[in-house]
Nucleic acid binder design. Structure first.
Lengths: 145, 145
DNA sequence: TATTGTTATACTCTATAACTATA
DNA sequence: TATAGTTATAGAGTATAACAATA
């Protein structure tokens, strides 16, 4: 199972490098990702989607506005709320990332037959179920780094 | 390949919860892990092992001393350096974590035959190689959260 | 009264740069 | 001069609590 951890760590690390080159961080990208899929959102909705406090969203959106990835607009019907919307730059970035994502997914299974990939996917599904079961059952799982 | 990411995210999240319950963080545990395997270290050595600045190690060790997981001792031959050593509490914690780790590894593949596990391990090895190749080749890999 | 977002404050991880004590 | 660790400063993510404006 150390393979899994190793893949995890490498992936994470590489991801941060690439985002950094684009002027983004993991958290901010996560927020952009939600906007990309859900469309314009209230900050409150973003907080729920990211499982983070509203205060935290304020900071992330501030940073994304400053770097031009999103814009704030007043909510049409609720004057307490603000809508967060992808800018042209933000939308283009998300498009590019989605495309890259496909490439990477293909690259990861390079040299493996479709059957093998399906098989591994099924195996991982079992692991995922086991993991979920363990988490909900007790709330244990250890260290590692 | 989304299975992989999902496993990754769940794992990470659960790990943080458990460490938090013990009064630890991922970074601090990583440092303890190095001490557990390498024995007493100079802070400089820890900085290299964790791939982090010496200044950062100072902060981590400060926190671990304050919470009683490690102690600082003068280096026997180099009076510039300090040795960081696991306390009894720290050592006991690492032992417990190592044991739990085995349990979790078993739990992850519960219901899978030994042959299936071997097969999946081999598949993941290929993925790992592909990932390494992609990283060194260019330095690309995308987002995702 | 309840909700939305903000200011205020604080903790953790991380980095660079400058400084002290030793080699 | 070079090395080990520290102080000083800064930026990112995160959290709680108190507060304003609006429902």
């Amino acid at each position: 199972m150390d393979r899994l951890l190793e893949v995890t760590v490498l992936f994470q690390h590489d991801m941060e490098s690439n985002l950094g080159a684009r002027g983004l961080t993991v958290s901010r990208t996560h927020l952009l990702w939600v906007l990309h899929h859900a469309g314009p959102c209230k900050q409150h909705e973003l907080a729920e989607a990211l499982d983070v406090t509203p205060r935290n969203v304020t900071g992330l959106v501030d940073a994304l506005v400053a770097t031009g990835f999103v814009v704030r607009e007043p909510h049409p019907t609720d004057r307490r709320a603000t809508l967060v919307i992808l800018s042209d730059k933000g939308a283009a970035t998300m498009e590019a990332m989605a495309a890259e994502r496909e490439q990477v997914a293909d690259g990861l299974v390079a040299g493996m037959s479709a059957a093998t990939v399906d098989r591994m996917t099924g195996d991982l599904e079992v692991v995922l179920l086991n993991l979920r079961t363990m988490i909900s059952e007790a709330g244990r799982t250890p260290e590692s780094p």
